[in-house]
Design a binder for these strands. Structure first.
Lengths: 182, 182
DNA sequence: TTACTCATGTAACAAGTTACATGATTTA
DNA sequence: TAAATCATGTAACTTGTTACATGAGTAA
């Protein structure tokens, strides 16, 4: 996120900042703690939503007036956060950035896929077996998760299932090709 | 990546470090510059392979003795890098880490998918239109790219195409559902 | 000889991570 | 009342980013 330039903010939101805004937009007033926890239970390893990142991002968003906090009459200093109108606009711009939205992102599977073809042929079938089994388990877990999620989460989980399924299809297409060649 | 503990290295390679090792493993001796350039032309926005990160990662990998450099008889200080045996082992461990490999990663499309459903209905159809058009263009570009890539890159490009296709299918399933409801 | 590509990096900054610290409130 | 959960953060660190600096070799 960039700083204010004196007149107006030109917020190029990070993925975390966008996600925090959308969390507040769709679930209403939340404490920072709850925002953070909703990230912690996300199905991504890369997405820890650590305290250090979330509280820092919230401070940045508040400075840019994209969110506001209200102190509660509470001895533990609970603050309820809500998104401002400018925040909604910034979030919409972030969500509708087509170039960024369709970017392939950081995909650990894709990054490793080229290597698997060249590893020791003695362990390769076992690895493919493990990958397929892990993908199948993950798809099942996501399907279970989908039942309890709300509308906003459903899209995300649905896409995660499609991603894992397409990885699985790719692995199976490798095996099929391998068999036909022998 | 973790430091040596006096006796042995326990390298938990970052994605960049793993990618550098696999680049050297599969394309043979390379200058840091060429490794870097091969990342710069990658199809990911999140993957810049900036000078700062690549040269720093190479220094870390060299300190951990996962790669070695040889000075060339050259007045511009060209150094050819190659992977060591320990480097190959570390790369294999990194590539075969099933849990990390099947992680869904940071997916900008999935992160935004839940928001699109709730944006202004006046602009939503246009957005979906733009997303579909951009995905189709990207798939065409990837297909063109595939023809010139080597064996290692083919897997990665193939998976990128499958990812974009599954996003496109998801968008089309939304439109189909939307139409049937009206 | 001018411009481009190859090749090395550094400096300042941004934005994550883990691990820790502190205390209030609720539940078993 | 003990343990779990809610709630706030900070400190030290890691690993990326952009933008800049420097210079050698090559092709127009």
């Amino acid at each position: 996120m960039q700083a204010t330039n004196g007149e107006e903010t030109i917020p190029a939101l990070s993925e975390l900042e966008g996600a925090i805004l959308s969390e507040l937009r769709h679930r209403g007033r939340q404490t920072a703690f709850k925002v953070r926890r909703s990230f912690a239970t996300s199905p991504s390893l890369e997405w820890r939503g650590s305290a250090g990142s979330v509280y820092a991002a919230i401070r940045r968003l508040e400075l840019a007036r994209l969110i506001e906090g209200e102190e509660q009459a509470d001895r533990r200093g609970t603050r309820l956060l809500r998104i401002t109108e400018q925040g909604s606009a910034a979030m919409a711009a972030w969500a509708c950035d087509v170039t960024r939205a369709i970017s392939v992102g950081v995909d650990p599977f894709r990054l490793r896929s080229g290597i698997w073809d060249a590893i020791d042929p003695a362990i390769r079938p076992g690895l493919y077996e493990q990958l397929q089994a892990a993908l199948i388990r993950d798809i099942e877990a996501l399907k279970g998760h989908r039942r309890y999620g709300d509308v906003i989460e459903t899209a995300s989980v649905d896409l995660a299932i499609r991603l894992q399924q397409s990885r699985l299809d790719w692995l199976r297409s490798l095996s099929a090709r391998g068999l036909s060649e022998r």
